[in-house]
């Protein structure tokens, strides 16, 4: 992992030469660097109808941040703003504010969304490996970046699969179809695929909601393990999961960010009434 760390740092420097110093004062917790900086953002799928309103938050390096809230509160929408997946919907767009990732406004004209997504990986709710072999699934992200050397691919595939805890299970059938795996394995394959390109940030949109409890436990363990290397943002409906895996939690309600704090604080001593009601299961 040492080599990849240094590589990561190198890439970061290319991407954001002046970030750290410029944004240092804004950082709330000085032990961590700021990775995602959401500054007073409003967003709508249709112009004039904002589904997210005036969101301001920071997401720190090396932390797991959980987004919780009832259905339709905008947590997934915000997540998809981070890698601009919402661009796929023609009318959708940010109506106000700025999202900075590693110090750069991701909506700036000089930002190439394709490059952005290479650094902000994503794991979806419904696992869906491509109908290719396990090997090709993991290698996909590298191949589209033009990396085709066998050795480099072999190494990256093994590393990623090991990271995702899948290597031992699939090492003998790397050329079998990814669709032949069980649900939990497929989701871990998707995680391996997402981290194979060494993104800075991994976004997870309810990664366990389609899985059984045992697979969920394995994935949660995996998330805890990934924390050392990636900044993770996870959307979840499962409050216990948020409590188990995250360092910090943000609670959304009806398109507003109600509260964001350390997870331990949030679950033991929420500062807002709404948060307390939601966490204690009184609504949602």
């Amino acid at each position: 992992m040492k080599t990849s760390m240094s590589e990561q740092e190198k890439q970061e420097e290319v991407l954001t030469p002046e970030t750290k110093t410029a944004n240092q004062p804004v950082t709330r917790e000085n032990t961590h660097d700021l990775v995602i900086d959401v500054d007073n953002v409003s967003f709508g799928y249709v112009p004039g109808k904002d589904v997210l309103r005036d969101i301001t938050m920071n997401i720190n390096r090396g932390e797991v941040t959980a987004f919780i809230g009832p259905s339709g509160c905008g947590k997934s929408t915000l997540l998809r703003c981070f890698n601009r997946m919402n661009d796929l919907i023609p009318t959708a767009g940010i109506s106000k504010g700025e999202i900075r990732i590693l110090g750069t406004d991701i909506h700036a004209p000089e930002v190439d969304v394709i490059e952005l997504r290479k650094h902000v990986g994503m794991v979806f709710q419904k696992y869906n490996p491509f109908p290719k072999s396990i090997y090709e699934n993991v290698a996909f992200g590298l191949r589209i970046q033009g990396i085709n050397g066998k050795q480099a691919l072999d190494q990256a595939v093994e590393e990623s699969l090991r990271y995702a805890g899948l290597w031992e299970e699939v090492k003998d059938r790397l050329n079998a179809s990814g669709l032949g795996l069980s649900g939990g394995q497929q989701q871990r394959l998707c995680i391996a695929r997402a981290i194979a390109v060494r993104p800075k940030i991994v976004l997870m949109d309810e990664p366990c909601s389609a899985l059984d409890p045992i697979s969920t436990a394995i994935i949660e363990e995996l998330i805890t393990k990934l924390r050392s290397e990636f900044t993770i943002v996870i959307v979840t409906h499962n409050m216990q999961q948020a409590a188990r895996v995250s360092d910090r939690t943000a609670f959304f309600y009806l398109g507003n960010l109600i509260e964001m704090d350390r997870t331990t604080t949030m679950f033991s001593n929420p500062s807002k009434k709404q948060t307390e009601d939601y966490i204690s299961g009184r609504f949602g």
């Binding site: 990986g121 869906n128 491509f130």
Partner: peptide, 24 residues
């Protein structure tokens, strides 16, 4: 979802078409 995944991996539209959609 295949296309979406591919986009999320940083594939361009043409890469998505030729490497994911067409083979599928």
């Amino acid at each position: 979802a295949f296309a979406e995944n591919s986009f999320a991996m940083g594939a361009s539209r043409l890469q998505t078409v030729f490497r994911v959609v067409l083979p599928t």
